[in-house]
Amino acid sequence: MPFDSVQIAHLGGAWGAMGSLAGSDGSANHPYLRRLIDDIEPQRDLCDAVHYICLLHGRHPGVIDHALEHARMPIESGWIEAAAEAFAGERAYLVRLVAAAGPLPSTPGHAESEAVTAAQSHALDMLAQSDRSGCATGAAVALAIDWTTIRQVLDTAAHRFGITPFPTTLPLAEETVSVVDALARECAIERAMLFGAQQVYAQHRGLWDLLEARAGARNRG
């Protein structure tokens, strides 16, 4: 299975720094995201979330695809190749959900939201195409870890839309830990991986903040 909070807390070795970062900065800690997962927000908010998640991660090539082009070690490229293949299915799922969600809900300040999302997309692309050894892989690893939480939002939306979710095929937690552990033996690569991961988590937190602000603007309207 992909990562969950218990696995992040208990897997050891060099995973420690990456696991700690996932636990402190990952999307699971965002209160608005938790409300979406718990299905207590209006359907229009779930529709909004699906659209904006697709804007960030429904594109091809995406973070993991770009990272594959910058992998230098066999263990690194093998994991990213498997993750990229699995994420193709996640993109197809996203596209299906966007179609079921219908048009974006009318929201004040939409042009500003689009500008913010464009900047986030650009930042993610830059991270995933970094020539700094380990940075792109760290970004890909962070996306794979955080996707476990993001997927819960998508599955909640799917149930609302009458769509049956399917299991994700992203690499197993143990496989990801093995890759991180092997690469982290070189301090420079570990620092670069942590930087890439930290920045992905920051962009995701920015996304949840944006979606929460958009929901508030709709409620005030």
Rank of each mutant, 00 (worst) to 15 (best):
D4K: 04
I8Y: 01
I8L: 15
L11Y: 14
G12R: 14
A17Q: 11
A17W: 02
S24I: 04
P31Y: 12
R34A: 13
R34W: 00
R35T: 06
D39K: 11
P42V: 07
Q43A: 14
D45H: 06
D45Y: 01
L46K: 00
A49K: 01
H51N: 08
L55D: 15
L55M: 15
H60T: 14
V63G: 06
D65F: 03
A67E: 06
L68R: 07
H70I: 04
H70F: 14
A71F: 06
A71M: 06
P74R: 11
I75P: 00
E76T: 05
E81W: 02
E81F: 08
A82Y: 00
A83I: 03
R91N: 09
V95S: 15
R96T: 15
A100M: 12
A100D: 08
P103F: 06
L104K: 14
L104Q: 11
P108W: 10
P108T: 10
A111K: 12
E112C: 01
S113G: 11
A115M: 12
Q120K: 11
S121Y: 01
H122G: 05
H122W: 08
L124D: 02
L127Q: 12
S130C: 10
A140R: 04
A142S: 13
D146E: 15
W147F: 15
V153H: 01
D155R: 12
T156I: 05
A157W: 01
A158R: 01
H159G: 01
T164H: 09
T168N: 11
T169H: 09
T169V: 08
L172C: 09
E174G: 07
E175V: 13
V177C: 09
V177Y: 10
S178A: 15
V179R: 02
D181C: 04
A182H: 09
R185L: 13
I189S: 01
R191I: 02
Q198C: 05
Y201E: 07
H204T: 07
W208L: 12
W208R: 02
R218L: 08
G221L: 13
